[in-house]
Design a protein around this nucleic acid. Structure first.
Length: 364
DNA sequence: AATACGGGGAG
DNA sequence: CTCCCAGTATT
């Protein structure tokens, strides 16, 4: 064992820790839809959805998703747009596209059986170190680490580790720690209990140390510094982008929508026609709209009074969207990535939440 | 090592 | 407002 690891685990009673932690988990764990059975496919879907996403948020999406795509085969053959529609509002949409891509590979290469080893699992799109460990331990009961934010928070407090959890090297340190202290008899319960403890007891802001089943083992608690851990460097502030979006109706009252590019932000989702506002332009907002619609779609549009504005905040930027109603007599050539659609057709397309909000305000 | 990638809930 | 959540891919 590496020296640093040796020092951290010196004088740590891992057997007692395992027992206390797992005992608590078996008694107190939440009833969750993906805990109803050990179907590796369902575990996989749940783990992808749970990336950077709260349990309460995921539950209805998971139930609906499994209903629509109950098996790897059904997901593999589904239309991507239907998969994105099932993901609509959940965020990080590349997760959905990577999941479908990976499931196709599992069906083609492994006869639809989710791999039970690191080599094959880690090759799948969207399956990183955490998800791979989660599938192996939870679905197959193999003692592999599954280190997420919860695990780093809990263990940084228990073992008094002050390394910056934003660093990759720190995540690897925690993986090595888990390899040493994981229960070889109950790896599934061990990993889940660490995460469950982080979610229910050892929370970020105000941990319930007085109710903690492993309080006796916690070095941070014994020193009274549980609130100072984990240590994490903060990220810089986000960039502002000003967007002008259009609710453009044609003669028959249909609305123009366009599909976003197949990579990058909100890839393959739909949106209203829009462009980034030039703040230093000598032209007004509505004139910029007319120029833009002429250039991009060769459409002459009449722009109405300002309709609404809203903010769409991402992790790394914020859109400030101004929305205008508009009308056109013109028509559009047939295209896959932009078309006039009825209210009915529009309801079937996947949109980012910001555009969902705008669309819900449309007077049809 | 840093950045892109959603959205929402807690304090 | 800030933080951060059962993280991964790309640069």
């Amino acid at each position: 064992m590496e020296a640093k690891l040796e020092k951290i685990l010196n004088n740590f009673d891992k057997l007692k820790f395992q027992f206390d932690l797992i005992q608590w988990f078996l008694n107190e764990q939440r009833i969750l839809p993906w805990r109803q059975d050990k179907d590796p496919y369902k575990i996989w879907v749940s783990e992808i959805m749970l990336q950077q996403t709260r349990v309460e948020t995921v539950i209805p999406y998971f139930t609906n998703f499994i209903e629509k795509f109950p098996s790897p085969e059904s997901l593999a053959k589904a239309e991507e747009e239907h998969v994105l529609k099932a993901w609509e509002g959940l965020g990080y949409y590349s997760r959905a596209r990577n999941l479908q891509s990976a499931v196709k590979e599992v069906v083609a290469e492994y006869g639809g059986k989710v791999p039970d080893n690191v080599e094959e699992l880690s090759k799948l799109k969207g399956v990183g170190p955490y998800t791979q460990g989660a599938i192996l331990s939870i679905a197959y009961n193999i003692p592999e680490p599954a280190v997420d934010g919860n695990v780093m928070r809990v263990l940084s407090r228990i073992l008094l580790i002050k390394d910056d959890i934003a660093k990759v090297s720190t995540r690897k340190l925690f993986e090595n720690i888990v390899r040493e202290i994981i229960s070889v008899d109950q790896p599934s319960e061990f990993n889940q209990s660490l995460m469950e403890l982080g979610a229910l007891v050892c929370t970020p802001k105000s941990p319930s140390c007085l109710l903690c089943p492993v309080q006796n083992h916690c070095r941070a608690f014994s020193e009274g510094i549980q609130h100072e851990l984990p240590y994490k460097t903060t990220k810089k502030k986000v960039k502002e982008v000003f967007i002008t979006a259009l609710i453009l109706k044609n003669k028959t009252g249909e609305i123009l929508v366009q599909k976003r590019p197949n990579e990058g932000l909100l890839a393959n989702l739909w949106e209203l026609p829009n462009h980034e506002l030039q703040l230093n332009s000598m032209h007004g907002e509505s004139e910029q709209i007319q120029r833009f619609m002429k250039e991009k779609y060769n459409l002459d549009v009449t722009v109405g009074d300002h309709f609404m504005n809203l903010k769409h905040e991402f992790s790394h930027l914020v859109w400030k969207i101004d929305v205008y109603p508009a009308y056109t007599d013109g028509a559009l050539p047939k295209a896959d990535n932009s078309q006039f659609v009825s209210r009915e057709e529009l309801s079937k397309l996947p949109f980012p939440v910001s555009y969902k909000k705008i669309i819900s305000e449309i007077q049809w």
